[in-house]
Lab assay of single mutants.
Amino acid sequence: MTEYKLVVVGAGGVGKSALTIQLIQNHFVDEYDPTIEDSYRKQVVIDGETCLLDILDTAGQEEYSAMRDQYMRTGEGFLCVFAINNTKSFEDIHHYREQIKRVKDSEDVPMVLVGNKCDLPSRTVDTKQAQDLARSYGIPFIETSAKTRQGVDDAFYTLVREIRKHKEKMSKDGKKKKKKSKTKCVIM
């Protein structure tokens, strides 16, 4: 069974824990209790493949930012979460993405942009803004509501699919490099 290491990042209060708990335990946590770091595991079937999701729910508070490099190193894919009623959390996505790329030393890291709290009427981040940002990053965008469960499975499952595509691409690139290195030079 394939294991996928997913990391949920975003500013404090955007609903990272609520999304994760909704996926794992099928219930909505409405009281806000700032996370330092929590880890969850769940076995699911995605596109006919049974897999184990190892999900790291991270601290959004700035005082825990020193811990970010460590979990970013171990993560295979990242859910970059903002709240649709919090423009600052949307603007912060850029910083999370840049930090992930720096730590992973790669421009090509599996990510999904997630606009959470889409059940709320007080939207300050337009869907088109988020779609445009995701398009500019070359990553999928999904709106979710941890409260109603809308888009929750889709967000995590899409990230797994992005990781699969990335692994497939990397193995193809690896095979191309191996083929090239088999060419021999004969000096007579």
Rank of each mutant, 00 (worst) to 15 (best):
N116E: 13
V152D: 07
H95A: 15
Q22L: 03
A59K: 00
D154Y: 05
T50G: 08
K42D: 06
A155R: 03
C80H: 08
K128I: 07
V8Y: 01
K117G: 11
K172M: 13
Y40T: 00
S17V: 00
T50P: 12
M72N: 07
K184V: 14
Q25W: 04
D108N: 10
D126R: 05
E3D: 12
F82E: 08
D119Q: 11
P121W: 12
Q22D: 13
V109A: 10
V44M: 15
S136D: 15
D154L: 06
K101H: 07
S181V: 14
K101L: 15
K16Q: 00
K172S: 11
V9F: 14
Q70R: 07
D47E: 11
N26W: 10
A59F: 00
G10H: 02
T50F: 08
E62H: 06
L159H: 03
I46F: 11
S39F: 09
D173F: 14
E76N: 06
V81Y: 01
E162Q: 05
R102T: 08
A18C: 09
L19K: 13
T2S: 10
P34G: 01
A155V: 09
D33K: 02
E107H: 04
C51M: 11
R41P: 00
G12I: 12
S106M: 12
D57N: 00
Y32P: 01
R135S: 12
V152R: 12
Q22H: 09
K177H: 10
S39G: 14
R73A: 11
A83C: 12
R123W: 06
V109H: 03
R41G: 03
T35K: 00
G174A: 03
S89A: 15
Y40D: 00
L56T: 04
K104H: 15
Y4L: 12
I24N: 04
L79N: 02
I21C: 12
G115R: 06
Y71R: 13
D38S: 00
M72H: 06
G60K: 00
R102Y: 07
F28D: 00
D154V: 06
F90D: 07
S65Y: 09
S106A: 13
E98D: 05
R149Y: 12
D126L: 08
F78H: 04
Y137T: 11
L52N: 12
K175S: 05
K128L: 06
Q150K: 03
R102G: 07
E37I: 01
G75L: 02
E49A: 10
K88R: 11
G12L: 05
K184R: 06
S17G: 00
I187L: 11
K165Y: 10
H95K: 10
L52C: 13
M111K: 01
L79M: 05
S122D: 11
R164T: 15
L6E: 03
R68V: 03
D38N: 00
D153L: 06
G115E: 10
Q22A: 08
E76G: 05
K104D: 14
Y71G: 15
N86L: 03
Q131C: 06
V112N: 00
K180W: 03
A134H: 15
D173C: 12
D30R: 13
Y137L: 09
L159F: 02
E62S: 05
M170W: 15
K5T: 03
E37Q: 02
L23N: 15
Y4Q: 11
S136F: 07
D54V: 04
D119H: 03
Y157S: 07
L23M: 14
E91I: 15
S17R: 00
N116W: 00
K16L: 00
D57E: 00
L19T: 11
E3Y: 10
A155P: 06
R164S: 11
I84E: 15
Y137M: 14
D47N: 11
K172E: 03
K172N: 10
L79P: 01
E63W: 03
Q61R: 08
G151D: 08
I24H: 02
A155L: 05
L159I: 06
R135G: 12
D69R: 08
E76T: 11
L23V: 10
A11L: 13
G10V: 02
S136N: 05
S89L: 02
L6G: 04
Y137V: 12
K104E: 05
K184E: 07
N86A: 07
A11W: 10
D173M: 02
A59G: 06
G75Q: 05
D132G: 06
I139W: 06
I21Q: 08
N116S: 11
A66S: 10
G138H: 03
V14I: 10
V160W: 08
Y32L: 02
Y64W: 08
L133M: 05
D30G: 12
G115Y: 11
T183W: 01
C51G: 10
G12W: 14
V112W: 02
V109T: 13
T35L: 00
D105A: 06
S17Q: 01
R41L: 03
R97S: 06
F82M: 09
C51S: 08
A83D: 15
I36N: 00
P121Q: 07
C51P: 13
N116C: 13
K117W: 14
I36T: 00
T74R: 08
D119S: 12
E162G: 07
S136R: 07
I142N: 07
V125S: 10
L120K: 08
S65E: 07
K165C: 14
I36C: 00
N26C: 13
E76W: 10
M67T: 04
E76S: 07
K177W: 09
T127Q: 06
K165M: 04
V125F: 08
E31Y: 13
M188D: 14
R68M: 03
D69Q: 15
L53V: 15
E91G: 03
S181P: 12
K128M: 07
A155G: 13
K167C: 06
K177A: 14
S136Y: 09
K169N: 13
V14E: 13
E49W: 05
G13W: 13
Q129S: 12
Q61A: 14
A155H: 09
V29Q: 11
N26V: 04
D132N: 06
K176C: 07
K167Q: 06
S39A: 15
D30L: 14
E107Q: 04
E37S: 01
T35V: 00
D57W: 00
P110G: 03
D119L: 11
G10N: 02
C80R: 01
Q129M: 10
D154M: 06
V160M: 12
M72A: 11
H27C: 10
M67E: 03
D69I: 05
T58Q: 00
E49I: 04
Q61D: 15
P121T: 09
G77Q: 01
D153W: 04
V29Y: 11
Y64I: 02
V125Q: 12
H95L: 11
L6Y: 06
V7E: 03
K5P: 08
V7M: 05
K178N: 05
I139C: 09
G15K: 01
C185P: 03
V45H: 07
G13C: 11
K128H: 05
K16F: 01
S106T: 13
P110H: 03
E76I: 11
T74H: 08
A11P: 08
Y4I: 06
E63M: 03
S17W: 00
F156W: 05
A59T: 03
E107L: 06
N86D: 14
I24M: 12
V109F: 11
K88N: 13
S122I: 06
S65A: 14
D92G: 08
H166V: 09
Q131F: 10
G115S: 09
S65K: 12
V9C: 11
L53I: 15
K169T: 12
K178P: 13
D57K: 00
S17C: 01
E31K: 15
V112L: 08
T58F: 00
I100K: 02
V109P: 05
A18H: 02
Y137C: 06
K169I: 06
Q43E: 14
I187R: 08
L113I: 09
Q25Y: 12
K180L: 06
E37Y: 05
Y157T: 10
M170S: 15
G138W: 04
G10M: 01
I139N: 04
C51I: 12
K5C: 03
D132S: 05
A83R: 09
A83G: 12
G12R: 03
G10A: 11
D132Q: 05
I21D: 02
Q70C: 07
D30N: 14
E63N: 06
V152N: 08
L23C: 14
V152Q: 14
I93N: 05
P110Y: 02
Q131K: 07
S39D: 04
G48E: 08
Q22Y: 04
I100C: 14
S89V: 04
I139Y: 12
Q70V: 12
